[in-house]
Design a protein around this nucleic acid. Structure first.
Lengths: 199, 199
DNA sequence: GTCTATATACAGATAGAC
DNA sequence: GTCTATCTGTATATAGAC
């Protein structure tokens, strides 16, 4: 896509369109968000939306970038904690992130699970994040084992994966069902994890 | 919807339309399945589809019923097995069912996770199945504990829930990612579960 | 019951004035 | 940059012949 030169007014408007699109795509999905709605809620005409972004698909990609911005894994503040506390912190962070980004998580999930258009774009990004999370967890488990804090028969790769899929399962339980027992389940998962890991 | 009287030919055709719709909705979702495609692949006209089913939505509901037919939980053959084997059998059955019904699972999942039309219809059915599965698991754990096979500190309700969400997590991992490590993870989950439960 | 032909609505996208 | 007006395609649904 070619970036036209914009004045201040243009940037402002373009940004408002983008923010509106990101919100609507997150809330209602690509299919259920007509350009007319984006235009209306951004208080511009359809034609202007398509002037800034060449097509609905281009708009989607741009909005996706914005939606994914808060998705990253911050590991800097893990230092100084023992391995158990590190794992616990990561699990809590995952949980809180999901709770704080329900709309976009639901949206991305829909993209990944369905045959929605252009899921290939996002699948790489989310996959990378997932793999990063897992490898960070596995490294922590490995270190804990080397230090003698965790059991010798801990399996860093599989234990990390199991923690992740369990977190994922709690997340979808939370996304799909009314009655939210996720806090209780999180506690129980932690107990189970550490009972398995800790010597 | 009013059921018109049909002759043999009508029933046959109606059934073919229904089967085609169920397959296409499962494969591509409601939004990506125009009536024209249903009609073409069922080798009838669009008008006939709408003669048998009053609207696309009515067709969807009818097809959904058919899609959900294989979704049930058979617990009769659990008798005679000890509690560990019962749990293992249920986990395997869940796993195999998902692998054998990828399309419809993916479809239902999409319905549940997204704001697709009429998800309320299906959510009850799937929710019931989920609750049934969990209560069956919880009962087995409770019995195993009473028998002294499982640890006294086993928590039937939470342990059952954790098994279920972990299974669910493995399932989505399997649905979303290319590299399929689900068999390995299933094994590891079982080990972890029984290490936690067994005395 | 099944068809062809058509009505109606709305989507994404373009043309051209300002 | 931003608009109004319009094009074009395709969707669901209906009318009416057979």
């Amino acid at each position: 896509m070619v970036e036209q030169p914009h004045g201040d007014q243009g940037l402002q408007t373009r940004d408002r369109i983008l923010a509106t699109a990101a919100r609507l795509f997150s809330e209602n999905g690509y299919e259920h968000t007509p350009l007319s709605q984006v235009a209306r809620e951004a208080q511009v005409s359809k034609a202007l939306v398509l002037w800034h972004f060449d097509s609905k698909e281009a708009l989607f990609r741009a909005a996706l970038g914005r939606t994914l911005e808060p998705y990253h894994l911050d590991v800097e503040d893990l230092e100084g904690l023992d391995e158990r506390a590190q794992i616990e912190l990561l699990m809590d962070r995952f949980y809180e992130f999901v709770r704080g980004n329900v709309y976009s998580v639901r949206f991305l999930f829909g993209l990944l699970i369905r045959a929605e258009p252009k899921r290939d774009d996002v699948i790489g990004k989310v996959s990378d994040l997932y793999d990063l999370f897992r490898s960070v967890l596995a490294d922590i488990i490995e270190r804990g084992r080397a230090r003698g804090l965790f059991r010798a028969d801990a399996n860093p790769r599989l234990d990390a994966s199991l923690i992740l899929v369990s977190l994922g399962g709690i997340l979808i339980e939370q996304l799909m069902r009314d009655r939210d027992q996720s806090a209780e389940l999180m506690d129980h998962l932690k107990q189970t994890v550490f009972r398995r890991l800790i010597v």
